[in-house]
Amino acid sequence: MEDNRPIISNKTDDFFRGLADAFAFVKRFFQEVWFPPYEFKEILRQCYEIGYRSLPLISLTGFIIGIVFTNQSRPSLAEFGATSWLPALISIAIVRALGPLVTALIASGKVGSSIGAEIGSMKVTEQIDAMEVSAINPFKYLVVTRTLATTFMIPVLVMYTDFVALIGAFLNVNQNELVSLSTFFVQVFEAISFLDVFSSVIKSLVFGFTIGIVGCYKGYNSTKGTEGVGKAANSAVVMSMFLIFIEELLALQIVNAIRYS
């Protein structure tokens, strides 16, 4: 007979089993990503979908954040008569933190949830099984492609967000301090260092990977029924946002250690 007694308690056991499961999923990604078939066509299609789905919202949010953040920072700098520092301050804030974070959070909502829902519904309608029995590796075709696509696309989208946010910031600065476009961008590029850009790109890669793999994992493990699919989409968003904040904190520690060493 099987022994069904919990090791610690049912809840704790389930938690650790879930964790082990998730690790196995990530491990499988790194095992399979190196070998053919590489499914380039599907990766490109996914990249396009990701960009297409999130561009409008990211443009709007980036632009507004640029304006609002500039406007809200002005009074504190004005107290010291240092409003000429605005472009430097804003560019550092955007490139180091706001750009990657805002982009990743929006993409979790838009892209992560749709990956979760799509794969979840493929799971419950047996489309994943259908691939498997026709000797097609569904993990490769669905999970590896989508995760690679988010990993590559989020850094691209982050640069775009940075750019749009800086334009928003420029418009605000231009109106209030009468700074020209070229002066503004000279100040911006003086303020940000190679480390800022480099760490932002690395961080974005990690965010992108997180969004893709979490969406796929939740979809792949969604339970039967339509509410299972909804749950998969929803928990993909919650989980990836949570992880993104944790990663942001870790990245901050690491980058600071490098910066001040």
Partner: peptide
């Protein structure tokens, strides 16, 4: 082996 699934399982 051909497998015709209950929900058809067409790739949507």
């Amino acid at each position: 082996i051909g497998f015709a699934f209950q929900a058809s399982a067409l790739y949507d």
